[in-house]
Design a protein around this nucleic acid. Structure first.
Lengths: 215, 215
DNA sequence: GCAGTTACGCTACGGGTCGTAGCGTAAGAG
DNA sequence: CTCTTACGCTACGACCCGTAGCGTAACTGC
């Protein structure tokens, strides 16, 4: 899952004393997401989260060092539900993932939390690293998998062997990820229009055509 | 420029009393950008901005209702420097704009401020509207202009006449904007890698291929 | 000049949040 | 039953927000 705190992640067995309440863990993360929906990032307070979770504020600070870390952990898990469907052809697969991601970002807690945390990370290198490992890199798997599958189907040319080919493949994966994720995020959060099937179809059409000969 | 406050924008001539200090205006906006660079969004305080600007805190509140509005105004002007170069062909034009936008977002004050304000806007409809009118819609002109120019060159097919054609054109413009802006923002702020000429070239290649037959 | 009007700097304040400290108590381990 | 750790609670200092009140500065119109 997500890296918890400095002290100790899972309840190590050699541990003595009263164990962390896993129920409290869940209640806090749920309460954080709920508070984000209701209040947004700027007005979310630790006291409020604690009250919603039925937990003392000090219990929050025993687990997370500050608001950012808490919200990252509360939100990261939401992105794990994304999957690459197998609809038979690359374009349909892309459409499917675009719609999933669009639906995910349409949910208020996802939208608010992601943006807030990314914003905060622009001035906080440690937080940015945490986001990358907890959220972004985990989702790159979708691009990598979709690409492999398309290559097996013969829809994309196979990677050229050697280090040059690997580098080109990594570049293509990076560009694809930035294009898809960036477009969806921009449409949802900036343009503020829905990611519907028509838009997903257009986007996938452009990508299929454009990425075809990239290597 | 940007909509100032509720009361009155430019010093109307029928006005009596001591006029607003335009010097203070500039000092405050400059100080806001500087503070953003140094402190980031979360730690930026109105008191600090006031101190940097050599101005009383109350003077800030006489002009802007809160932090968000101040930062939007301080940042919006930065985006006006974007221009569509005329490099002879559509792909080169796109590359040029991508590099400009990339360089703009590489600057700390732009990066920080844009993200922070967008993040805040996810829970504030009025602020979102202000961003759209002050920043986003103003830059859509680049896409519209580039598209027209490419159609005149014969690089893109002309719009079909009639309302259906207009709607298709609007959709294409919207998709193009989300793709370009989204990819650049995502690469800069999430992937956290540079928008260099190689990447810009790849991106423009994909777009040229993909957008060609979209209408 | 002089009154009228508005902006400015300054100080002070109430309300709210952050993150921490200290205490007594609850829950497991050996 | 003791040791160790987590929990709830209260209180606290530090900080920031946004506003109010005052005396002063700047500009307009008479």
């Amino acid at each position: 899952m997500v890296a918890r705190m400095h002290h100790s992640a899972s309840p190590r067995k050699g541990r003595t004393g009263r164990p962390r309440s896993t129920e409290a863990d869940r209640a806090i993360l749920d309460a954080t997401r709920a508070a984000l929906v209701d209040l947004g990032w700027g007005k979310l307070t630790m006291s409020d989260v604690a009250a919603r979770a039925g937990v003392a504020k000090t219990t929050l600070y025993r687990r997370w060092a500050n608001k950012n870390e808490l919200v990252v952990d509360a939100v990261a898990v939401l992105f794990d539900e994304l999957e690459l469907p197998d609809r038979g052809c690359l374009q349909s697969d892309i459409e499917g993932v675009v719609l999933q991601f669009g639906a995910l970002l349409a949910r208020p807690e996802t939208k608010t939390a992601l943006m807030a945390v990314v914003a905060e990370s622009t001035a906080d290198e440690a937080l940015r690293e945490r986001i990358r490992s907890a959220i972004v890199d985990r989702q790159k798997r979708l691009v990598i998998l979709g690409r492999e599958r398309a290559q097996q189907r013969g829809e994309l040319p196979p990677d050229r062997p050697g280090p040059a080919g690997e580098q080109a493949a990594a570049q293509a994966i990076g560009l694809t990820f930035d294009l898809i994720a960036g477009a969806i995020v921009h449409r949802t959060l900036v343009t503020a229009e829905a990611v519907d099937t028509a838009w997903a179809h257009q986007l996938s059409t452009v990508l299929i055509r454009g990425l075809g000969g990239l290597g």
